[in-house]
């Protein structure tokens, strides 16, 4: 996964990938929708709208793949200059959610904020980064937990 994004794939490749993913998603949905009964017009059942949506979706997604395939310039691709950084963000956020239920709100929030700040700011101003992460995580901990009295994970 990471290797694929190390060098930004060319715009058309990315376009095709996304279009194919959408087609695959719609097809899966249609396949699952066939598991619910369609009913009749006077009493549509749980599968009525899903099957119609599934058929429409597959058709449109197929047209979309064709559109991307045949159009010379399928439109701009803008995933930023360094998509890798966005994936690093995602990684931190996933770890945050995974640990949130296990280690308690305050420490995990502090760690996640710190990690995100390090990703986005790099090593410069380390003291500043630490201060911000600390103040912020204590701040929202107090806000949600104490002032609003909400149950924390």
């Amino acid at each position: 996964m990471n290797d694929a994004y190390r060098s930004q794939p060319s715009a058309p490749t990315m376009q095709i990938l996304v279009a194919l993913t959408l087609l695959a998603g719609c097809s899966l949905y249609l396949y699952a929708a066939m598991g619910f009964s369609f009913g009749v017009w006077s009493s549509p059942k749980a599968g009525f709208i899903p099957r119609i949506a599934g058929c429409l979706g597959v058709t449109l997604a197929a047209c979309n793949v064709a559109r991307v395939w045949w159009t010379a310039k399928p439109g701009p691709v803008d995933l930023g200059l360094s998509p890798r950084r966005a994936f690093a963000f995602l990684g931190v956020l996933v770890a945050y959610v995974a640990l949130l239920g296990k280690l308690g709100f305050l420490p995990v929030t502090f760690a996640a904020t710190l990690a995100l700040l390090l990703v986005s700011r790099g090593r410069r101003g380390l003291v500043m980064t630490l201060t911000i992460a600390g103040a912020f995580s204590v701040g929202i901990w107090l806000l949600f937990g104490s002032i609003l009295n909400l149950p924390l994970p």
């Binding site: 963000f89 956020l93 945050y96 959610v97 949130l100 239920g101 709100f105 929030t109 996640a112 904020t113 995100l116 700040l117 990703v119 986005s120 700011r121 911000i132 912020f136 995580s137 929202i140 949600f144 909400l150 149950p151 994970p153």
Partner: peptide, 26 residues
């Protein structure tokens, strides 16, 4: 933005949690 966005990410996630007190929403 380099400081703001990480904070926004954490706020969005914790806000989502408090909607239904449910981690899977995150």
């Amino acid at each position: 933005l380099g400081i703001l966005m990480p904070l926004v990410a954490v706020i969005v996630l914790s806000g989502t949690y408090f909607m239904n007190n449910n981690l899977s929403d995150l």
